[in-house]
Design a protein around this nucleic acid. Structure first.
Lengths: 247, 247
DNA sequence: AAGTGGTCTAGACCACAGA
DNA sequence: CTGTGGTCTAGACCACTTA
């Protein structure tokens, strides 16, 4: 494996970051500084910084500098959040989710629409009314967007109920579903990690080169009826996911 | 958002990929071809291709060309593999991309070593013997490495048993642990997605710009004793993870 | 031997941040 | 206004694949 100048510079900086010499939030030596110190072309210095950015160790702020990235991880405990008992105590589903910083809803859109094909399949929709209620939210932490979520529910089930309003009330959507005799008790989550496309990266204001986690959750009632599909897109750099199972 | 030449070229190619005009496995127009067609510098053509690679849509084979990436997803159902008594397996939302192919062990290393700090903590090791048995494996599909796994077990528990041998016999490590009176029945998995460092990318022979999923699993006996820590590193482009819970 | 991606130098212009 | 990262052109050499 060739040890190119750009890689050498990146190695040096990486070592200084990991040793703590360059603390999170610190401004890294910029391109001009690297050009002077290492006697390379500006492009090469830029490439070295891009390597660190691609590893998720740094992020660039154009016009200002390149900074050691701060890792403020959010722990998302899927199993504990959604298991029965924990949720009955009122408060949003997300209350138990965050470590310190509050997760806030930044943008909310509620609308009715025809179900995309994969949603119709997951919700087992057929016949006349294949329309769904879509609740789209964006979550922010410290003003930084970290998650997008689109929740799909059968319109025939929730039309005209509180679920179709922006504020679903105490306990959230799932509590309202329970009142409708459709309490979700079983969940499946399918999960992928990939690179975001440009729109997604923009919506999460992610620096290019950092991945996202895509989660598809299907919520089922006790008799196995699917009542909600939730597609989530997480900034991978902000999250640790947690699953517990067995017994 | 600036629409630079490189982005324009990438947009064109992306559209042709998504439309199926450029099928998976196809060779993309190379740098020289793009230079001619678009009248740009070689670097700019290279940057356009790098954008697609960073999105996971293509991968470069130096000396040969840049190719539309094939998505053959492996489905990993954590809950069903490890739990006793299973529910029916529903269809995957990404079913179209999922393929059933055998996962083979490519490289195996078994050794005894002092426990890294985080392992000692997870395994609740203290006192005299903090050494662990480490079983390192690499898994391949169709000759392509897709997963690395390092399993750590308390040496005091498994030293001299079949668990310490390369071939652990029918049922694997967990069956042997059960025979030792330490059957794992509860599991926690912590999961992150991030960019691989250079060593990891090489071990998984990943094109730079594609993420990995890191999983830390702790296996507990019925009385809550941790008996195994497993650190897995998956090629994110090859996997869909599946969790089921509730009830 | 020809073609490919990978990387480098050298020099240029731009948009934007911050004092 | 100065310094920053972002991107471009133009030209060069290398290691590798493929035939």
């Amino acid at each position: 494996m060739a040890e190119t100048p750009a890689r050498q510079i990146a190695d040096d900086l990486r070592a200084r970051i990991k040793s703590g010499d360059l603390a999170p939030g610190t401004r890294l030596p910029g391109e001009p500084a690297l050009v002077r110190q290492y006697g390379v072309a500006k492009q090469t210095a830029a490439n070295a910084l891009k390597l660190l950015i691609a590893e998720g160790l740094a992020s660039a702020r154009p016009g200002s500098g390149t900074y050691v990235r701060e890792f403020k991880l959010i722990r998302r405990s899927a199993t504990e959040r959604l298991s029965r008992g924990r949720r009955a105590s009122g408060g949003s589903v997300w209350a138990a989710d965050v470590e310190e910083r509050p997760l806030e809803v930044d943008a909310l859109d509620v609308r009715e629409a025809p179900a995309p094909e994969w949603v119709a399949e997951a919700l087992d929709l057929s016949g006349d009314d294949t329309s769904v209620l879509v609740r789209s939210r964006r979550y922010v932490v410290d003003g930084e967007p970290v998650q997008l979520a689109d929740s799909y529910l059968p319109a025939a089930l929730v039309r005209g109920t509180r679920v179709a309003e922006p504020d679903t009330g105490p306990g959230g959507t799932y509590a309202r579903l329970a009142e409708l005799g459709a309490e979700p008790v079983d969940f499946t989550e399918e999960l992928r990690a990939r690179m975001p496309d440009r729109d997604e990266a923009e919506a999460l204001s992610q620096p290019p080169g950092t991945p996202v986690i895509e989660i598809l959750r299907v919520a089922l009632t006790a008799d196995g009826r699917p009542v909600e599909v939730n597609r989530m897109l997480l900034d991978a750099g902000s999250y640790v996911l947690d699953y517990r199972f067995g017994g």
